[in-house]
Each structure stands twice: as C-alpha cells, then as structure tokens.
Amino acid sequence: MSSSKINKVQISTKINGQDYDLLIPPYMSLLDTLREIVGLTGTKEGCLDGNCGACTVNVDGRIVDSCLVLGPEVNGKDVNTVEGMATPEGLHPLQQAFLEEAALQCGICTPGFLVSAKGLLDNEPSPSEERIRHWLAGNLCRCTGYDKIIKAVQKASK
C-alpha cells in the first residue's frame, strides 16, 4: 500500500473570521497549513513535539499546539491565530501590554504566549497570578523570563 498515491484533501475552514477552501496534503500539520498554504507566518514552529507552545493557535475556543494537529482535522472549524488579534483600530490589549512591559526579546515565543493568554482572558477576564502561571505552563520562553510575561498578562486583565 505504501506505493499507492496519496491524494490531497480539500478542507473548508474559517481562519481569523475569513472563510478558506484549501487543498492540502493529508499529513500536513495545521502549523504548516497556516504558514505554507495560507501564508500566515505569525504562528511559529518551535519544538514540533508539544512542549514549547510557540505554535499555539485557537481552534473552536480551545488553545492547541498546531504542530500536533493535522490540517484536515480543522475542516469545518474556527481557527484563530495571532494575526487575528489586532484590529485596524489598534493592537489587542495583550499585545499592547506585552510592549509596555517589555515582555519579549527575540519574539519567537510571543505569538504563542499571546494566543494562549487570550484563550485564558476570553473566558476568565480576571485570573490570579497562579492561574496565569498554570495556564501558560505549556509556553516556553528562553530569553525574556516569565515575570515580565506574567506582568503583561496581569496588565491586560480586568
């Protein structure tokens, strides 16, 4: 069977509020689908095994590691990435707080942290520091350190 041709699959999905019909290899991750097919390169590739959270996106209201989701799995689903956070009016409050608190250095982990933190604040607008730290345990940062990131999320909280 390994010689049989593997056909691309068609999926319909909503990404940052916009409808997409995509033709993708069935074994392509959601991460690669976003970056290489849709051209949304805000979502970053890190460890590719679910440890670092750099590729975090939101699917139907839940944050997931997009490296551990296949593109075809989001057929019919609602995907939100870091590109969907700012509006023409300005940055999302979390993005503004990350800037003001200097909660980034190299920036590779930042989109993942932003999407994760948004997933928390969308449902719990006033989380405790402990809750924020627990929620963000699936996101790693190798340069800023976590205190500034936690402070930024607290600043964007109500």
Binding site: G50, G53, I63, V64, L68, G119, G138
Partner: peptide, 9 residues
C-alpha cells in the same frame, strides 16, 4: 497531563 494546549486534545 501536559499543559492546557495538550489537555484540549
């Protein structure tokens, strides 16, 4: 099991 991202799946 894992973090929040993993627990979603």
């Amino acid at each position: 099991i894992g973090g929040i991202q993993i627990q979603s799946r």
